[in-house]
Design a protein around this nucleic acid. Structure first.
Lengths: 222, 222
DNA sequence: GCTAACTCGAGTGTATACACAAAATCCCTA
DNA sequence: TAGGGATTTTGTGTATACACTCGAGTTAGC
């Protein structure tokens, strides 16, 4: 693997895992030494991060890790709903019905999984990821997929703000089942509606957990 | 201005203006010499172009200008409608009414402009650009704006495929007036609907001009 | 005669050196 | 003592050199 790819992945992981919190200045020499690569590939990595919006130029001198807060989450979900509703709608029109019918059934039975402990919960997250991937593929739209891919980087980062609780996960499974079901029916409008509902509830949940523990305001001012 | 910025803008312009047609191999040394910069800033420029989707890695060796065809236009408009409908809807909720009311009036009277010759037509395009900008601003969503900005680069490229005809421009002015009017009313649903209609008609027009002169298939195979 | 392997070349990936710009610190002056 | 200017330092922007990889062409062997 190329040094620039390694640097990019390392930095990206460090940012989305909050090991490099928002506001951190990413000096070229400093990061190059830390990651054991030269400045040239590291600059390429920083360029990619900047293009994705994970980092931003800092007053002419270096780049900083961009801030992420509840306000950003609201904006992010406005973009997300537009993209995912469209994706779901297109998938309903173009996807294979059996594929999404079976996903729906998996989500229906996932309720059982979620009563278990962490290993099972991990399998649930994999299932969600599979639905996303399959919708992407069924939508068969390169540009839309690319936009969603860019978006998901930020969503991973946001996820650290939310605390999953069992009730929400259970509701989420039902919502996902509804989405998969609507796509399986080939009903684009319904699929978009189910997606919108799911995203609305997800954001609501995020807001409620944030209001009770507003711990992120320490960095967002930078 | 930085050398990497100059190289990026030059390459970007050359691509969207079809001076570098799809399939063109962008060799680093070759382009660096042509643009009078070193390989280092040119690599940065190529990286940005690749991130935007204007260029793509070419079998592990160099990058090529990506293909753009009617099929791509269809996909592009599927993404575009999702983004612009959302933007229009948010603008209706958050924008200043008088601002869009006045834009609506300008579009209403633009019909007169379009009967004139090219200088006036240029002013019409500026008006369209201003509506886009104002919607962007009123939507007040960084991520959405960024996604739209990325998208518009490709749209400029597509525009070269279409031939504007006076009838279409006249209809387009009316559609834009409808969009501005709906936003001025604060009616998000209506604004989204008007936007969707406009985009549908635009794509239809593109398709019809393409079917009559399918001259672009020469390069799309590469 | 055809296929496979080796060699040569072109072009990319990476490292490093150098130049320039900006920010911070220190010293001098008021 | 405070403020401003100059100098130093740090960090980025650019150029270039070197190494490595991939591909094409040629030659040799079957």
């Amino acid at each position: 693997m190329r040094a620039s790819d390694r640097a990019y992945q390392a930095l990206r992981d460090d940012i989305v895992e909050w090991r490099l919190p928002p506001g951190t200045v990413l000096g070229e020499v400093e990061q190059a030494e830390r990651l054991g690569v030269s400045r040239t590939p590291l600059r390429e990595a920083l360029g990619r991060l900047t293009a994705e919006g994970l980092a931003a130029p800092h007053s002419g001198r270096g780049v900083v890790v961009t801030a992420i807060s509840l306000d950003h989450a609201v904006e992010l979900f406005e973009l997300r709903s537009a993209l995912e509703c469209q994706a779901a709608s297109l998938a309903a029109r173009r996807g294979k019905r059996e594929q999404f019918r079976s996903l729906q059934q998996e989500f229906d039975s996932a309720a059982a999984l979620l009563r278990g402990d962490d290993p099972d919960r991990h399998r649930y997250y994999e299932l969600v990821a599979r639905l996303d991937t399959d919708i992407d593929e069924a939508a068969a739209n390169t540009y839309l997929s690319q936009a969603l891919k860019n978006l998901r980087v930020h969503l991973v980062r946001i996820r650290r703000l939310a605390k999953d609780n069992p009730d929400r996960l259970l509701a989420s499974a039902t919502e996902h089942a509804n989405i998969a079901g609507a796509i399986a029916e080939g009903d684009g409008q319904l699929a978009a509606a189910a997606t919108l509902l799911h995203l609305h509830n997800s954001l609501d949940h995020l807001k409620s957990t944030q209001q009770s523990t507003p711990q992120s305001s320490e960095r967002t001012a930078s």
